[in-house]
Nucleic acid binder design. Structure first.
Lengths: 118, 118
DNA sequence: CGGGATCCCGAGCGATACTG
DNA sequence: CAGTATCGCTCGGGATCCCG
């Protein structure tokens, strides 16, 4: 877990270090909707805003917009805006995020062992 | 990400399925303190309650107790109680959790690419 | 020593309405 | 179409005190 026991000054997510890469990684995909959004984008490829809104049953306008903004700022997705009429905006997974997907797949596989319906 | 696009009835973390293993996996290690706890236990092995309390600088009694209880209920750690005087309780990582650690290490390595101080 | 019981606050999220 | 603005609430987590 990339921790140094000799340095116990961590103020973040890890008890061992100032800066915990695991903590910062989890922040990027944290929150209620980021995983579902990435999941949808990784399956369907380039997707428009309202398409996402429909596919992610239950998400609100507010949460989709703010989540997309954060994901873009963190380099996980691209936002492409086409100045047509009406406006068209498309979202797509970045290479950085593509690197993440197989890791998440492993995590999902590990999670399968969890049979509890929590 | 183990999702089925043909089933859009997901009410959990994933837009594609009723039950998302990735979502349930992330729930097990979610919250503010579970990763730090697992990190400490994976480094130092078997550890006592008050030892954890000291090592995890900033954690409160309430959070340590509740986090440990959840981690045990989810099968990530063992709790062993020795009826000495005074009472001694030790916590340890389970094999199930040991399987998780290399995956988290990968996630941490991926997170290293994040240079933003968010 | 290893917790439990309460109280409380603020972030995160939802609902609704509005806009370029 | 693709968002922003505001409000309000729930609930994760902190602080403090208590208990076997």
């Amino acid at each position: 877990m990339k921790c140094d026991p000799n340095n116990n000054t961590c103020k973040g997510n890890c008890p061992c270090k100032e800066y915990c890469p695991l903590g910062s990684a989890l922040k990027l995909i944290g929150g209620k909707w980021k995983i579902p959004i990435l999941c949808a984008l990784s399956q369907d490829g380039t997707t428009r805003y309202n398409e996402l809104l429909r596919k992610l049953r239950g998400i609100t306008n507010t949460m989709l917009a703010s989540s997309l903004k954060e994901l873009e700022a963190d380099g996980l997705i691209y936002r492409r805006q086409y100045l047509e009429m009406p406006v068209r905006v498309e979202y797509e997974i970045t290479d950085f995020c593509t690197d993440l997907l197989p890791i998440l797949a492993q995590l999902a596989q590990w999670g399968v062992q969890t049979h509890k319906s929590k």
